[in-house]
Simulated scan of single mutants.
Amino acid sequence: MNIPVQSHRDLKVWQIALDLTESLYRLSERWPKHELYGLTSQVRRAAVSVAANIAEGAGRKTTGEFIQFVGIARGSLAEVETLVILARRLDYIGEEVCHALMQDILELGRMISGLIQSLERKRSLS
């Protein structure tokens, strides 16, 4: 039996995106202070954008709008991935931390793609 989604807060993909955002905020607190308005700010904004766009899409009226915002979230996740790789290359994070983050990003990306596919099926049935 499927439980209906009442809010974006019910979406596992949104919850995982918020967890990733929290992790990146805590991790980036330790980055050099000269990066505060550079890489630190950029990775935080990109991570927030993933969860925020999922939430905004869920709050829209049409499935098409939801798909559009989830697509933006997917783009923001690609930005997060790029910034994590850069943080590793600059030695702001270690290899193990980078690997764990990349696994989380990969899984979240799969979930986002699955949500888009599900929404596209729903739209085609309407």
Rank of each mutant, 00 (worst) to 15 (best):
G75H: 09
G71V: 06
I85V: 13
V80S: 04
L83Q: 15
F66I: 02
D10V: 11
W31M: 13
G57N: 07
A52D: 06
Y25V: 13
W31I: 10
T40E: 03
E29T: 06
G57Q: 04
A55L: 04
L83A: 07
G57L: 04
Q103S: 07
E107S: 09
Y92L: 08
R60G: 01
E29L: 12
G109K: 02
F69N: 11
E81N: 11
R74W: 00
A51L: 00
A58C: 12
H34I: 09
K33M: 07
L90G: 02
E35H: 06
A73Y: 01
L11N: 07
A47L: 06
Y92D: 03
A47K: 07
V84D: 03
V43I: 15
E107Y: 10
G64T: 12
Q103Y: 00
A17S: 15
R74N: 08
R44V: 08
A52N: 13
S49N: 11
A73D: 10
E96P: 00
T82W: 03
A55S: 14
L18D: 01
L27P: 03
V43R: 12
W31P: 03
G38T: 13
V70A: 09
G75D: 04
V48F: 04
A46Q: 09
L39W: 09
T40M: 11
L77S: 02
D19T: 09
R89I: 08
L77M: 07
A58K: 04
K61H: 13
D91M: 11
L20K: 02
A78N: 11
I85L: 14
S49Q: 06
H99E: 15
I105S: 07
R88N: 11
I16S: 01
R110W: 03
L108M: 05
F69C: 10
A73F: 04
E96L: 09
A47F: 04
C98Y: 08
I85Y: 09
M102A: 01
L36W: 01
K12A: 12
M102N: 10
C98Q: 14
C98D: 13
E107L: 13
G38V: 09
V13R: 01
L106G: 07
R60Y: 04
D91T: 14
E95Q: 10
D104I: 00
I16H: 03
A46L: 05
G109W: 05
A100D: 15
L90H: 06
T21Q: 09
I67L: 05
L18F: 02
Q68A: 10
K12E: 14
L90Y: 10
T62L: 09
G38W: 02
L108K: 03
E35L: 13
D10F: 02
V84R: 00
N53L: 05
R30P: 00
I93T: 10
L39N: 12
D91Q: 14
L106V: 02
E29Y: 01
D104R: 15
R45M: 06
A58Y: 14
R88F: 13
A51Q: 01
T21N: 11
I54L: 13
L108N: 08
